[in-house]
Measured scan of single mutants.
Amino acid sequence: TYVQALFDFDPQEDGELGFRRGDFIHVMDNSDPNWWKGACHGQTGMFPRNYVTPVN
């Protein structure tokens, strides 16, 4: 499953995934309602669910 970033996200903690608005992120785990795990630009980490939108 892929999502697209609605906003820039700069990691604040180790293990978070940084990205820029418009980036596509491969979702690896969406079991938590607020923080998902994904991959983008060769990196993996957690990111806030409300920063992304589903891609059809």
Rank of each mutant, 00 (worst) to 15 (best):
T53K: 15
K37T: 11
F19G: 02
P11E: 06
S31H: 15
M46H: 11
N50H: 14
G18Q: 12
D29L: 02
G18M: 12
D8F: 01
D10N: 15
G45V: 02
R21K: 15
T53L: 12
Q4V: 06
F47S: 03
N34S: 12
F47K: 01
R21M: 11
T44H: 07
V52G: 03
F24Y: 10
S31I: 04
D29T: 04
C40V: 12
G45K: 02
F24P: 03
P33M: 14
T44G: 03
D23K: 00
H41F: 08
M28H: 12
M46D: 05
C40H: 09
K37G: 05
F19I: 05
T1K: 15
Y2K: 10
T53R: 11
F24R: 12
P11W: 02
D32S: 08
P48K: 09
R20K: 14
F9Q: 06
R20Q: 13
Q43K: 14
A5G: 06
V55R: 08
D14E: 13
G22Y: 05
F7L: 14
R21Y: 05
T44A: 07
E16G: 13
T1S: 09
D10W: 10
V27I: 10
Q12N: 12
L6R: 09
T53D: 08
V3H: 07
Q12W: 07
V27H: 02
Y2M: 14
R49C: 13
H26Y: 12
E13H: 12
W36I: 11
R49N: 04
V52T: 07
D10F: 08
W35V: 12
V3C: 15
N34A: 13
V27G: 00
F9N: 05
G15H: 12
D29E: 12
V3Y: 14
M46I: 14
H26N: 14
F7H: 15
N34F: 11
D23G: 01
V27D: 02
Y51K: 14
D10Y: 11
S31F: 04
Q12P: 06
D23I: 00
V55T: 15
T1I: 13
F19A: 04
K37C: 07
R20H: 13
Q4M: 08
V3E: 02
G22N: 06
H41T: 04
T53N: 08
F9P: 03
W36A: 04
D32V: 02
P33N: 06
H41N: 12
I25R: 00
Q12M: 15
W35H: 08
P54G: 10
F47G: 02
H26S: 12
A39S: 15
G22R: 03
P54M: 08
Q4Y: 06
P11N: 05
F24L: 14
R20L: 10
I25Q: 00
G42W: 01
F9Y: 13
F19C: 03
R20F: 07
G45H: 00
D10C: 08
I25V: 07
Y2R: 07
D32I: 03
E16T: 10
F24G: 03
W35C: 10
D23M: 05
N50R: 13
D8I: 03
Y2S: 07
S31T: 14
S31A: 13
Y51Q: 05
V3M: 08
M46W: 11
D14P: 14
W36Y: 11
M46K: 14
V52M: 01
E13T: 08
Q4W: 06
L6F: 03
P48V: 01
G15Y: 10
R21W: 04
G42Q: 08
T1W: 06
E13L: 11
W35N: 06
D32Q: 10
F19M: 04
N50A: 10
I25H: 01
A5M: 01
F7Q: 15
E13A: 11
D10M: 13
A39R: 14
P11G: 14
N34L: 12
N56V: 14
P54K: 15
N56R: 15
N30R: 13
V3W: 12
F19K: 02
R21L: 06
Q43W: 06
P33T: 08
D29A: 05
L6Q: 11
V55Y: 05
M46Q: 08
Q12I: 08
V55G: 11
P54N: 14
V3K: 03
V27Y: 00
Q4A: 04
F19T: 01
W36T: 03
M28P: 02
P48D: 05
D14Q: 06
G38E: 00
S31V: 07
V3T: 05
F7P: 00
P48C: 04
F9L: 08
A39T: 15
P11R: 05
N34M: 13
E16W: 11
A5K: 00
V3A: 05
G45R: 03
Q43I: 14
W36M: 09
S31Q: 09
K37I: 11
Q12L: 09
W35L: 12
